[in-house]
Design a protein around this nucleic acid. Structure first.
Length: 615
DNA sequence: GCTTGACGCGCC
DNA sequence: AAAAGGCGCGTCAAGC
């Protein structure tokens, strides 16, 4: 059967005065709203002429298409594909998205992945500008203007697709299709009463805190007012360097209050002996922590409108091509509060079961087998608990799973210290993740134990450090010192799939000390920012990129049954009664060693139930 | 009234 | 010599 490519762009009604826009609500709400209206569409088939279809012919036009052999290509296909599925009940054979392809191919070398920016990047005629805000019915002239505007967008989409396709690995198309399909063809349902209840309860919990203390919430939520409040009660405000803001010299960071959960001084205030101070700090956290309340309210609203889409962005994560959380279905599912209604309310539909698989410490395993560290590998292969192993050495006595606090510390060390973290940051990490307070001496000891006990890992950092000059293009990339599952090319690392981790404008610069550093420039939120590159960070990028590839391989193996993906987790749907069989299949899919690192031992924890929050 | 920058939170 | 990293979203404050 011969495929045909359909480049498509829906033009739809919006009204900013009524807040009926995609900025104000998710794609799901926008398209399911009673205000939704298709104004028309622009399209092109293969290399044919770009044409406009008026609103009253849209249905007939879409019905005449043989969807079983049609590949749909749009800029942000989640939007057009969702309209197509939800309003017109059409399902193409394959989804392609130029927005996602751009993220995969161009990454952070470009300030955004909008059609306008992409047109500029590829030297195409600029995207047009048209305002149809609030126009429900169009005059003939208005429709003509819209048609012209839309046709140009379709033309841009087609050209941009063809350009991006030159560098988009063939292997990624099925995964791109699956990612879009998870959104466009939703299968999960939301437990609306549960979400409403969660939101109401959380709102009450927070309100009670401010009522009891007798001070308005705004005094706590304001970064200006809260430190003043503390001072008024006679407390000293801890300070820290701002991570972003610099003084006028451009080098010295501005000092700001250290009153967040990531600040050790604040945690000590929060958990200390001074009851008044504790109360004030608890109220501060309550004021700043809005996610559970706002998100469950939003999800309740979405759940009442129909099935829920799992929204992730293809190649959304900085550098590594992992998925990031999408915002088209009520907010990023990657940061749904653990053990909360947000996860428990995500349910399999009637007569279905949900199977959730989670790769077991995937990044640690990658660090182990990439560095070939015998200690880590032995622990993995004998099933020894590596966290207890580390903790036993640190504490100088045998630590078992029964010693919860000690094991937790071991876990933080094993997961945290693999990418070169120093003792200073490790104190903060341990404090925020385990609540334990480390002395400088103990922190230094932990870092030292990690680097000597698993000595091949630091050795790998140093080797990767040396390889940076290959990325700079000084050394022939064909000369590789040892077998390694990623490629090194000019200003990029190539993952096995062919997707690049890019380090644009890689160069050496004078660091703060007397040493020279490798730095590169990437866009963050539309602004070019300089980042450092060093061995530990390269290993982190590589491990996260490879973990992403393993996850994608498992997704492919499970096919259309995959309904969600969250970090190292896969959500798979199956008919009631097939849960255990599906679980076994999923566990196998998540345990297969990849051809690019055949010696690695993988494992996954798989659960079967009716919702995402199983046990 | 809107956008933008900065910060903090929750997830890994 | 040593250096852990990232995403999306809500809120506040400042700028227009």
């Amino acid at each position: 059967m011969n495929k045909q490519f359909l480049y498509l762009d829906f033009e739809t009604y919006y009204d900013s005065k009524q807040s009926y826009t995609l900025r104000k609500q998710s794609i799901l709400e926008y398209v399911r709203s009673s205000q939704y209206k298709t104004l028309g569409l622009g399209y092109a088939l293969d290399d044919g002429k770009v044409d406009w279809v008026s609103q009253k012919y849209v249905h007939a036009f879409l019905t005449a298409i043989d969807w079983s052999r049609t590949v749909l290509v749009c800029q942000n296909t989640k939007f057009d594909g969702f309209i197509l599925h939800e309003i017109y009940k059409k399902i193409p054979a394959q989804y392609i998205d130029t927005l996602a392809m751009s993220r995969a191919v161009l990454g952070k070398t470009i300030k955004s992945h909008s059609l306008a920016t992409l047109a500029e990047h590829f030297g195409l005629e600029a995207k047009g500008f048209l305002n149809t805000d609030g126009k429900w019915d169009l005059t003939i002239d208005e429709e003509k203007a819209l048609a012209d505007y839309c046709r140009h967008d379709v033309e841009l989409c087609r050209t941009i697709y063809l350009r991006l396709a030159e560098d988009f690995p063939e292997s990624q198309y099925p995964l791109l299709d699956q990612t879009i399909r998870m959104f466009v063809e939703p299968k999960l349902k939301l437990n609306v009463p549960m979400l409403q209840n969660a939101s109401v309860e959380e709102a009450k919990r927070r309100a009670d805190i401010f009522k009891e203390i007798g001070i308005d919430k705004s005094e706590f939520s304001s970064n200006v007012k809260f430190p003043i409040l503390l001072q008024k009660y006679g407390y000293e405000v801890p300070m820290k360097e701002s991570p972003r803001k610099m003084q006028e010299d451009g080098i010295t960071p501005v000092m700001i209050p250290a009153l967040a959960l990531g600040d050790v001084d604040f945690l000590e205030m929060l958990e200390g002996q001074d009851e008044k101070l504790k109360m004030l700090c608890e109220a501060r956290v309550a004021a700043k922590s809005t996610l559970l309340e706002t998100r469950s309210a939003k999800m309740a609203k979405i759940g009442s409108m129909g099935l829920w889409s799992f929204d992730v962005e293809f190649s959304g994560a900085d550098q590594t091509h992992r998925f990031s959380g999408g915002s088209g279905a009520g907010g990023n599912p990657q940061n749904f509060t653990r053990n909360s209604a947000l996860r428990t309310a995500v349910e399999a539909p009637d007569n279905y079961e949900l199977v959730v698989g989670d790769f077991s410490n995937i990044e640690m395993r990658l660090v182990a087998y990439l560095s070939k560290d015998p200690g880590l590998i032995e622990a993995i292969e004998t099933g020894k608990d590596i966290y207890c192993d580390f903790a036993s050495v640190f504490y100088g006595r045998t630590i078992t799973k029964e010693n919860k606090d000690e094991r937790r510390f071991g876990k933080t060390a094993i997961l945290g210290l693999g990418y070169g973290m120093g003792w200073n940051k490790f104190i903060r990490t341990v404090r925020t993740q385990t609540g334990q307070t480390l002395t400088e001496e103990d922190s230094r000891k932990a870092v030292d134990i990690y680097r000597t006990r698993y000595a091949q890992v630091p050795l790998l950092w140093y080797r990767l450090d040396g390889l940076i000059k290959i990325l700079f293009g000084e050394v022939n990339p064909a000369i590789m010192p040892w077998n390694f599952p990623v490629g090194f090319a000019k200003q990029m690392i190539l993952l096995p799939s062919g997707l690049p981790i890019r380090f644009p404008n890689l160069r050496q610069e004078q660091g703060e000390g007397k040493y020279v550093e490798w730095v590169y420039d990437i866009y963050k939120k539309g602004k070019l920012e300089k980042s450092k590159l060093y061995g530990g960070k390269m290993l982190e990028n590589i491990c996260q990129g490879l973990a992403g590839e393993l996850c994608k391989t498992a997704m492919l193996a499970m096919g259309q049954d995959v309904v969600g993906q969250c970090h190292d987790e896969l959500l798979v749907l199956c008919r009631r009664g097939l849960g255990h069989m599906t679980a076994a299949k999923l566990k196998r899919a998540m345990s297969v060693s990849p051809s690019w690192l055949p010696e690695i031992k993988l494992d996954a924890e798989v659960k079967v139930g009716s919702n995402w929050g199983i046990k």
